[in-house]
Design a protein around this nucleic acid. Structure first.
Length: 136
DNA sequence: GCCAACGTTGGC
DNA sequence: GCCAACGTTGGC
């Protein structure tokens, strides 16, 4: 199973919103690179939930529940979304500062390309963030 | 709130 | 097909 990272502004759609909603579409993505990553996702893939802008930390883990399907919030049919559900919060959220300070995470897309809202995470990065977050 | 970085659009 | 202008994202 592959790993991913999803960004959202906490005021717009944060971790608590996802927890309250249960299974939710990850809609509103209007970037080709991000869309293509969503097309690559499989049911059972896991992803980090990152709070951008005013959070700047990874707060939880979610699971992909449905593969890419048309995004009903788009005017045309070129955009897709996947369905995700909150799995569990990180006991200790992992901040962007902590990620930048960790040499093992220096190649994370989060660090390299701050504007990409859906991005892949390598198995090594995944394990490292889990450790820093107080899991495993 | 500002603005750098990035992506997209559209005139040529 | 180039690139200037514009819009958006997201760290600061």
């Amino acid at each position: 199973m592959a790993h991913w990272l999803f960004k959202s502004e906490p005021e717009v759609f944060g971790w608590d919103h996802l927890v309250a909603k249960g299974v939710s579409e990850w809609d509103g993505v209007r970037n080709y690179q991000a869309r293509n990553f969503m097309r690559d996702m499989a049911v059972g893939d896991t992803g980090f939930f990152y709070h951008s802008r005013t959070g700047l930390e990874i707060v939880g883990i979610m699971t992909v529940m449905a593969t890419a399907h048309p995004d009903s919030t788009a005017d045309d049919d070129k955009w897709v979304c996947v369905d995700v559900k909150a799995d569990r919060p990180l006991p200790r959220p992992v901040t962007l500062d902590a990620i930048k300070a960790e040499p093992a995470l220096s190649d994370m897309v989060l660090v390299r390309n701050s504007r990409l809202s859906v991005q892949p995470v390598t198995p090594a990065e995944w394990a490292q963030v889990l450790r820093m977050g107080g899991l495993t």
